[in-house]
């Protein structure tokens, strides 16, 4: 086990609510690390709608998901938070009163006084294509991500999808695979045009196959895939021989390990009390889309409010001996100093 990273507060989820919580905690002198399963900051704003306009952020008539993320990052810069991306929190263990040891799937360990769950709809995970019986082949013949390319040497690979992941892995794995077939439901790809061109060249040169259609069934035994049945756009059925399938169908939100952290759950949401948005476990808070309480609205602005109140209570845990005096950023010279504007 690696040495534990010590911090006042660990935030799980780097979406807008997690980011703004850094600001509110920072004003009260609490240091923060954030963990997010995505490879980028911004949560749903970055993953689902980076270019879509948001109209209900107070004081900002129109901002895109990406724009809001960038603005929040600018706003929390003075507090210098540390981001741990591409990592998923797996377990939270109580080690103090309050105090927690938090472990990620990358083996990283944090020790903190306070945990803030701002995990939105849960963790983004690869979408499982709706093919009957696919579960039986997962992690033996069916993979949703490529961790080590070498694993796929001399394999007969079926890659499914038409986006950048599908095309990039087609091109990257092509030199080491025995044979690659790319399958997509239409002869039109949303991936970057130059990757599509490269792929079409390989097809034209007879170095790989391109099929248009959708997988309807898998053939094989004991987790070992031997072929995929495919329905073409003309409804004609065909069989593609393969021992490995890599489906790239984007991401979906799943509650994931949140369910294993000893927190009360209600319809996959975490109930909190509304004075500080603390969960049933003292020292663990839940803010943003993942929490629930009477009257809850899943709005970014509600998550901001929840973060501000959470920070007040978190302060009591992190600095049990310090009295908290409520101050405004407009007039308090000590807050302005923290923000680096005075």
């Amino acid at each position: 086990m690696s040495e534990a990273i010590k911090t006042d507060v660990l935030i799980i989820g780097a979406g807008p609510c997690g980011l703004f919580a850094v600001f509110e905690l920072g004003l009260l002198d609490m240091k923060v690390h954030l963990v997010d399963i995505l490879d980028k900051i911004g949560g749903q704003c970055a993953e689902l709608y980076p270019e879509k306009p948001i109209y209900d952020i107070p004081g900002i008539p129109l901002v895109t998901g990406q724009g809001l993320t960038e603005a929040l990052l600018e706003q929390i810069k003075p507090f210098d938070p540390t981001f741990h991306l591409n990592e998923m929190v797996e377990s939270i263990e109580k080690i103090g009163d309050p105090g927690f040891r938090v472990t990620t799937d990358a083996g990283k360990v944090f020790e903190c006084k306070v945990v803030v769950v701002s995990a939105g709809g849960g963790s983004f995970q690869p979408k499982r294509p709706p093919v009957p019986g696919i579960e039986a082949y997962e992690n033996t013949s069916v993979f949703y991500a490529v961790r080590k390319m070498e694993q796929f040497r001399d394999r007969e690979i079926l890659i499914v999808g038409g986006g950048d992941s599908a095309l990039d892995w087609t091109l990257n794995l092509h030199p080491l695979a025995k044979r690659i077939t790319l399958l997509h439901r239409r002869d039109d790809f949303r991936a970057a045009p130059h990757s599509v061109e490269q792929m079409r060249k390989l097809v034209a040169d007879g170095k790989m196959d391109l099929k248009i259609g959708q997988v309807t069934a898998l053939e094989g035994a004991d987790g070992k895939l031997s072929a995929a049945q495919v329905k073409g756009s003309d409804n004609a059925m065909s069989t593609i021989s393969c021992d490995t399938m890599l489906p790239f169908f984007g991401l979906t939100m799943k509650l994931g390990p949140v369910a294993n952290w000893g927190l009360q759950l209600e319809n996959n949401l975490i109930p909190v009390e509304t004075a500080s948005f603390e969960t049933n476990v003292p020292g663990i808070f839940a803010i943003g889309d993942i929490n629930t309480y009477p009257g809850k609205l899943k709005l970014i602005l509600s998550g901001f409010h929840e973060g501000a109140l959470m920070a007040q209570k978190a302060h009591r845990y992190v600095y049990p001996d310090k009295r908290l005096v409520f101050q405004y950023t407009t007039s308090s010279s000590s807050l302005q100093k923290k923000l680096g504007v005075n």
């Binding site: 709706p130 999808g161 038409g162 986006g163 439901r185 949303r190 959708q214 169908f249 984007g250």
Partner: peptide, 11 residues
């Protein structure tokens, strides 16, 4: 929308 339909089931 076509791009998103790529993620659908039995399109």
């Amino acid at each position: 929308e076509e791009d998103m339909l790529d993620f659908g089931y039995d399109v």
